[in-house]
């Protein structure tokens, strides 16, 4: 037992190094005082970060991405909440099939989503703009939001709502005092993860954006210019840190859901 435990621990450590090693290069080379991404390192510099301050196209792209990420994560969270509430509270005709259908974008190759959506937009003669990306991202994020919200609603035992009504509260009060606080960790998790996914998503944005690039589309364009590499690394470092903060927050709220889940599981066993 002891022996195999060590073997597995070695496995997971190697795995984590493999998983994280590329990401470590981002900060290393974004502070490196050289135009070439190569060893040996030549010296410490923050010049690549400063360069980012004067990139107007970057700032526009950032603004576009923020708009898209905020809008699509809110939309997806609304949809996910509706699906989760429907499937956790009611048993209805076509429930399984329709919920599964809503989850399909989870495994569909993104290129196919992108091509499909673009085909329809072209057929309809619609102009591509930020809103078309918002729609595409909402479609992509809704499955994630749905899964998170289903988990959040699962711990909302129906008896809690009934108890609140029984103790004299109105339906509105019950929503405000019981339902909302109970599922709010889920709502926040869903918003955070939706935001992160949208902010990082490239292909759908690549297909559906018009003349206004998103952040990943901007970064993609930078890849062609070797001279832009170090500042792209600097941008990557910032994105990495933002993602880390958001994901850590997400993790914090996800654990809140689990705490409630654990509690309601105890309820179920009785």
């Amino acid at each position: 037992m002891k022996q195999s435990s060590k073997y597995f621990k070695a496995c997971i450590v190697i795995f984590l190094i493999f998983l994280y090693a590329p990401a470590f290069l981002l900060p290393i080379f974004s502070f490196n005082d050289s135009k070439v991404i190569a060893f040996p390192l030549s010296g410490f510099s923050t010049v690549w970060f400063q360069e980012l301050l004067y990139e107007d196209t970057l700032h526009d792209a950032l603004r576009n991405s923020l708009f898209i990420a905020v809008s699509s994560s809110i939309l997806a969270t609304v949809f996910g909440t509706l699906v989760a509430r429907a499937s956790s509270r009611y048993q209805f005709f076509g429930q399984r099939a329709s919920v599964t259908f809503i989850l399909v974008p989870l495994i569909l190759p993104e290129i196919i989503l992108g091509v499909c959506l673009l085909t329809v937009l072209i057929q309809l003669g619609l102009n591509l703009n930020l809103w078309t990306v918002v729609l595409g991202h909402t479609l992509l994020i809704t499955p994630f939001s749905t899964l998170i919200m289903v988990s959040a609603f699962n711990n909302l035992d129906i008896s809690l709502e009934e108890a609140s009504l029984d103790l004299g509260m109105s339906a509105v009060q019950t929503f405000r005092l019981i339902i909302l606080p109970m599922v709010s960790p889920g709502l926040i998790s869903s918003l955070l993860i939706g935001f992160v996914i949208s902010l990082d998503e490239f292909i759908i944005a690549f297909f559906l954006t018009g003349v206004e690039p998103t952040l990943p589309v901007y970064i993609w364009a930078q890849f062609r210019f070797p001279a832009k590499l170090p500042s792209t690394m600097a941008l990557g470092t910032i994105l990495l840190i933002v993602s880390l903060i958001l994901v850590s927050l997400f993790e914090y709220f996800r654990r809140r859901i689990e705490l409630y889940n654990h509690y309601s599981m105890e309820l179920d066993q009785k």
């Binding site: 590329p22 290069l25 080379f29 990082d200 990557g236 880390l244 994901v247 997400f250």
Partner: peptide, 14 residues
């Protein structure tokens, strides 16, 4: 949860 695009790009750099 960190940028897929950047992670793949880093392999090119590596």
């Amino acid at each position: 949860w960190t940028s897929y695009l950047l992670r793949m790009f880093l392999w090119k750099v590596i």
